[in-house]
């Protein structure tokens, strides 16, 4: 006999469906909105962070995206999922921020977690001549982020959403408000650009 995990109480925000939480939040229930923030905070933060390569900016922008979403929640009619709608707000906010900042980038990178050292694909990329793995990974991280920042915002966004966060072409098209063909062509062009910028780190 297998013991199943007790189901979350559907009367508490943590156990509620997304639709119910959204309806409650639309009526001004901040507890419900707090639960929605908890559900999506990591993905929204990660998207903004990978776009800016700056932890402090990502923190501010992700918070502002959630605040803006709350203030605009009454206009959310459910035409798309809340998740897609929220993503769109975060993406637009980030792109506007990057356009205002223009090309003045300041890297403030997060640490690489322990699991990276156990990723065979990553380890295969590190040169044997590098003294220690830590140094190699941090150097690779810096070069990768610099290369990403050289892409235009729409191209960077497509790479981040697809190759880093694993979103489908359909989802990206909905989030970015363009068709799938545009997503595909942007992704191809962005990868080509990245490959050129990182030629020294990728076997040709």
């Amino acid at each position: 006999m297998t013991m199943s995990e007790p189901a979350a109480n559907p009367n508490t925000p943590a156990g509620m469906l997304e639709g119910d939480l959204v309806k409650r939040a639309q009526r001004g229930d901040l507890q419900a909105y707090d639960e929605l923030v908890k559900r999506y905070q990591e993905r929204i933060y990660a998207t903004v962070y990978h776009m800016t390569s700056n932890h402090e900016d990502a923190n501010d922008l992700a918070q502002e995206a959630f605040i803006k979403a709350y203030s605009a929640l009454k206009s959310f009619k459910g035409g798309s999922t809340f998740y897609t709608w929220l993503y769109r707000i975060a993406v637009n906010k980030t792109i506007n921020f990057l356009k205002q900042r223009k090309n003045k980038f300041h890297l403030s990178l997060n640490d690489i977690d322990f699991n990276a050292e156990h990723d065979p694909d990553l380890m295969a990329l590190i040169s044997d001549k590098t003294p220690t793995r830590d140094v190699a990974l941090s150097e690779l991280q810096k070069k990768l982020n610099e290369a990403l920042l050289k892409l235009s915002e729409p191209h960077r966004m497509v790479v981040v959403l697809h190759d880093v966060q694993g979103q489908s072409h359909d989802e990206i098209a909905e989030i970015m408000g363009c068709n799938i063909g545009t997503v595909r062509s942007r992704l191809f062009y962005a990868r080509q650009q990245l490959q050129g910028h990182l030629a020294g780190y990728i076997k040709s």
Binding site: H50, D111, I112, D121, L122, A124, D163, V164, Y201, I202
Partner: peptide, 15 residues
């Protein structure tokens, strides 16, 4: 290989 390299971004975690 580029995709492998981009996997490194997934290991960047906030404090």
């Amino acid at each position: 290989e580029l995709k492998h390299l981009l996997k490194l971004k997934r290991h960047e975690s906030p404090p």
